[in-house]
Computed example of a mutant assay.
Amino acid sequence: FFVFSITGENVLHIAIVNEEPATVKFLLDAGVDFTQRCCGKFFCPEDQKSSRVDNVTKECPDVSVPTDYEGYCYFGEYPLSFAAVLQQEESVRLLIAKGADRNCQDSNGNTALHMCVIYNRIPMVDLLYELGASLDIKNRQGLTPLTLAAVKAHKDMFDHILQKTRTIYWQYGNVTCAGYPLDDIDTIGKDGSLNDTSALSIIVRGESAGHLDMMDGLIVQLLNEKWRTFIKF
């Protein structure tokens, strides 16, 4: 199947949007190409529509890198991302069972996990992670799903992903001793350079009330530790 609608989606996208998992299964069994992206400005973030140029000589269109990812129908281009954003669990499982890439990246470098962060779909993050999707992939702005949650000031999502990345050393009753990988959290990278796309940098510099709400837990602990180590006399 290589038929696209007037808006740039194929039959598989349409079946997912219409919440028809039986049709999705039929199409997959019939050999529909689940790697096809939707195309055209209709499925683009609003602030990228004026810069988007579709080029027949390459798979990805040319779009400006800066974006807030806000769009009426920006669902991540691939059928898997569509299914995840639209919370079609059965379709997600069908696509992955057929071999869909769990970490396929759209024109903005966003995976299905990134898209779930944008739309705040915590249950779908759990499902994709359970099915093998990676939380370590960065998009074109250098953001992982965790740091993208910081950009969007989605506190519950940020905390949820943070818990998935931790390593628990021991638990006793309600007390847990755990370690967190600081690659995406701390302002200082492994090589000693400043990491402007770290969660801490994003949250501290954030201008929304949502970013202020994120100033708790691990973020505050990290700030206090930095104060004691590098500033306090």
Rank of each mutant, 00 (worst) to 15 (best):
P145N: 13
L146E: 08
T111M: 02
D68I: 02
R102S: 03
P61Q: 05
V151R: 05
E70D: 11
G109H: 01
E90T: 12
G206K: 01
Y180R: 07
G8V: 12
S198Y: 08
N18T: 15
T23E: 07
Y129A: 15
D68C: 01
I219L: 04
T35I: 07
L146C: 13
A15H: 04
D33H: 10
I168N: 08
L135Q: 13
E207P: 04
E9M: 15
Q163P: 05
D186F: 11
D47Y: 00
N139E: 00
L27D: 08
Q87R: 14
K155A: 05
L127R: 10
D216C: 13
R121P: 05
D216A: 11
S107V: 03
E46D: 10
T57N: 13
G210K: 05
T165V: 15
W170T: 15
A209G: 09
S91L: 07
P79H: 09
D47R: 02
L200S: 09
Y172Q: 07
Q171F: 02
E77N: 04
V3A: 07
D196Q: 13
N18K: 14
G31A: 09
M115S: 00
D33W: 06
A133V: 04
S91C: 13
A199Y: 07
R205Y: 03
G71F: 02
E19A: 15
E90P: 09
L223I: 15
H13A: 10
Q141T: 07
I16Q: 04
A97R: 03
R205S: 12
R205N: 14
Q105E: 01
F2N: 12
G217Y: 08
D156N: 14
H13I: 11
L212S: 13
T23V: 11
L200R: 12
I168Q: 12
C60K: 15
Q171T: 14
L128A: 13
E20N: 15
T176V: 15
N103C: 05
K25V: 04
V24S: 03
T111D: 05
M157V: 10
K164A: 12
F1D: 14
S198K: 02
G109K: 00
N120V: 02
L128T: 13
K49D: 09
G40K: 01
V3S: 10
Y180A: 12
D186G: 10
R37V: 02
Q141Y: 06
D29A: 14
Y69N: 04
A133R: 08
G192R: 09
G71H: 01
F26T: 15
T167H: 14
F42L: 00
I202S: 08
M115Y: 00
N195M: 10
L28T: 06
S201I: 03
